[in-house]
Amino acid sequence: MATEQFHFILIDDSKLDCFIGEKIIVGSGRAVSCHTFMSTSAAFEHIQNSSVDAHRTIILVDIQMPLMTGFDFIEHFEKNIPEPKQSTYIINLLTSSVNQNDMIQSQRYKSVNAFLNKPIKKDVLIDLMDKLNS
């Protein structure tokens, strides 16, 4: 079986982090597409307007976003994106400091797949995709 390819959505308010993230994602060789957004609302709009195809989408969202935080985004996503579309997205949280409270809060949302430390590393990303495959 060929390794699965994914769409990617990266949400981070730092231009540099978006740039680095995109490099890593594209460099993994397993991205069908990669969209970066500096605001959660723009990313949400994109998700709402895109249609489902053969590939699942991996979302990487920074927790500490202004206005709509990463957690707000997930809440908004779970509430407004209908099934079965919702399950074609795999949401992962990005943080530069893993915090116990964040961990606890993330358990409240069924659509959180994993916590990733910033900056995103290629092997971590590939490991994440492999786990989704099996």
Partner: peptide
């Protein structure tokens, strides 16, 4: 955050 970004860059 920004320091990690710079290191990544």
């Amino acid at each position: 955050g920004p320091i990690l970004s710079i290191l990544g860059a």
